[in-house]
């Protein structure tokens, strides 16, 4: 049963991108275990405001695990110690009375810190802009049932398309690699006949952009897959490698 617990928080505070940051320690009493992790931070922030201090800045929006905005590294895990959830779906019942919880921002050269726990993930948008789409204009599309698609393939494409672009893969990776994110998009579109046409071009363009933005080289540690809240498989990375190498050898 959920009860009230007392916890100690160690939170990374950093005023701006160029300022030096440090950990601050806060204590919270009587936190209901049925509340979500972000609701616990809301309580902390309201307490800080009432004490005349600056609240902790963190990104969040939908709070139902789909927008990909929340991004906290909690006790050594992106999105915290629960499985297959984003930070907003993590609940305080995963913690015990007297626990110390360390909260850090995503750390990677590709995701510079904006303030406290907020990071800039616009690099992901830039990678998608480089080629993560099917080049069709609005209008003129043929009837949706014109090209049948094998159910297995459509399902596999959907598995890859479930990516929410939160960046936990990069945050978990010791190499700061964005391969799982890129692989998910390349796989999603390469598996469908509509996206197949541009598959080679897309793989090359997205990988080039990913490299240009300073993300690291994948060494297949698999940390990304373990921490991904949407269970994106690293076999997508193998597919990306295949697509990329095929495209390059063809050139």
């Amino acid at each position: 049963m959920d009860k009230n617990i007392n916890i100690k928080l160690r939170i990374w505070r950093q005023k701006g991108p160029k300022e030096k940051g440090a950990f601050e320690t806060y204590e919270l009493e009587n936190v209901y275990q049925g509340s979500s992790f972000l609701e616990m931070l809301d309580i902390l922030n309201n307490k800080l405001i009432c004490e005349g201090k600056e609240p902790v800045a963190f990104d969040h929006d939908c709070r139902e695990g789909i927008c990909g905005m929340c991004s906290l590294y909690i006790n050594g895990h992106p999105h915290g110690p629960d499985e297959d959830v984003t930070t907003c779906q993590l609940h305080m019942r995963k913690f015990n009375d007297g626990d110390t919880i360390t909260i850090e921002p995503w750390r990677s050269a590709g995701f510079p810190i904006i303030k406290d726990l907020m990071v800039d993930r616009s690099a992901f948008d830039k990678i998608i802009q480089a080629g993560g789409y099917v080049s069709v204009n609005t209008g003129g599309a043929p009837d949706a049932n014109t090209i049948p698609i094998e159910k297995d393939k459509a399902d596999a494409a959907m598995d890859a398309a479930a990516c929410i672009g939160c960046g936990a893969c990069v945050a978990a990776c010791k190499n700061g690699s964005a391969m799982l994110f890129v692989a998910a998009k390349v796989s999603h579109l390469a598996l469908l006949p509509q996206g197949r046409i541009e598959a080679a071009k897309r793989a090359k363009a997205m990988v080039a952009k990913m490299d240009e933005l300073g993300f690291g080289n994948c060494t297949n540690t698999g940390a990304c897959e373990i921490e991904c809240p949407k269970n994106i498989s690293i076999t997508n990375i193998a597919r990306l490698n295949r697509e990329f190498l095929k495209a390059k050898f063809k050139d």
Binding site: G76, E104, R107, S108, A109, I113, G176, F215
Partner: peptide
């Protein structure tokens, strides 16, 4: 690529 700052935990 990992960045200058490292995770503490």
């Amino acid at each position: 690529a990992r960045g200058k700052e490292r995770y503490e935990s």
